[in-house]
């Protein structure tokens, strides 16, 4: 049948896209274990020297520490702020609701370089350029949309009648939140946490403008290293980041489905 043949073409096309999407992530893995001094494919020999190089360099470790600290704090703040905002946005109808939702989502679609420069400029006028707190505020701004979205997706699946039921049964608002809403929102909050953490860990452009000597996040450190070196060290650190991403994807998928979080 002709339509079946057409579906074959479609399947083949999708398979090609899958290869295209996976290729640059997969090729990093063997390259990280190459004994060659240049980043090449196919890799020559087997060696863990680039991982050793990575660990011996203090700047990578301190950049990782800063990245994790910023990601952790930005995630915590985004979740709390996002929980409040999501509740207001998805439980009430008020004047300007959709405008506010659009405002909160703006960092997702604003050209990154323009946002980065703008944040650098406002931080500089506030004396927070190349400052930990300036960096943290920027990361909260960038991760907040993800927190609002994931928690919002979770919230929309909890019927308002469940809240009403709890209230009529004698639950005060704080009890309603603690005994009913929080347990029901837990998967959404967890998925939002992982998402925010990863987005913050991976953030590049804004961090490039807000960091500096003594205050460098991991992606920026990799960028700086690659400016002057072309050995497989960047592949080996990429492997570590890919592993973290894989764990994150698997966890979100189990918690509430990546698809639901994103669409």
């Amino acid at each position: 049948m002709r339509s079946r043949a057409r579906l074959r073409y479609l399947d083949a096309f999708v398979a090609a896209i899958v290869v295209f999407l996976l290729a640059p992530i997969v090729v990093v893995l063997p390259s990280a274990f190459s004994s060659d001094v240049a980043l090449s494919f196919p890799p020559q020999g087997f060696s863990t020297r680039w991982f050793e190089n990575l660990l011996s360099r203090g700047e990578f470790l301190s950049a990782a520490r800063l990245s994790i600290t910023v990601a952790f704090l930005a995630t915590a703040i985004s979740l709390i702020v996002g929980l409040f905002a999501a509740y207001a946005l998805f439980r009430f109808d008020f004047w300007g609701r959709s405008a506010l939702e659009a405002l909160f989502m703006t960092p997702l679609v604003f050209p990154a370089i323009a946002l980065a420069l703008s944040l650098a400029m406002v931080m500089s006028t506030a004396g927070l350029l190349r400052d930990f707190w300036g960096l943290l505020i920027a990361h909260v701004l960038i991760t907040m949309p993800y927190a609002i979205r994931t928690i919002g997706a979770s919230l929309r699946e909890i019927s308002v009648a469940i809240e009403d039921a709890a209230l009529t049964l004698g639950a005060r608002p704080a009890q309603l939140f603690w005994y009913v809403m929080l347990p029901l929102l837990r998967p959404g909050i967890a998925a939002g946490a992982i998402f925010s953490f990863i987005i913050s860990m991976d953030e590049f452009t804004v961090s490039l403008f807000l960091t500096g000597p003594g205050l460098t996040t991991l992606p920026i450190e990799i960028f700086n290293y690659a400016e002057f070196n072309s050995d497989p060290t960047i592949a080996s650190i990429s492997v570590i980041l890919i592993l973290i991403s894989c764990i994150a994807v698997a966890t979100i998928e189990r918690l509430m489905g990546l698809r639901r979080v994103l669409s």
Partner: peptide, 12 residues
């Protein structure tokens, strides 16, 4: 890929 750093993907 949305959860893999752009730095990593560009290295790829």
């Amino acid at each position: 890929p949305l959860l893999v750093s752009i730095v990593v993907r560009t290295v790829g």
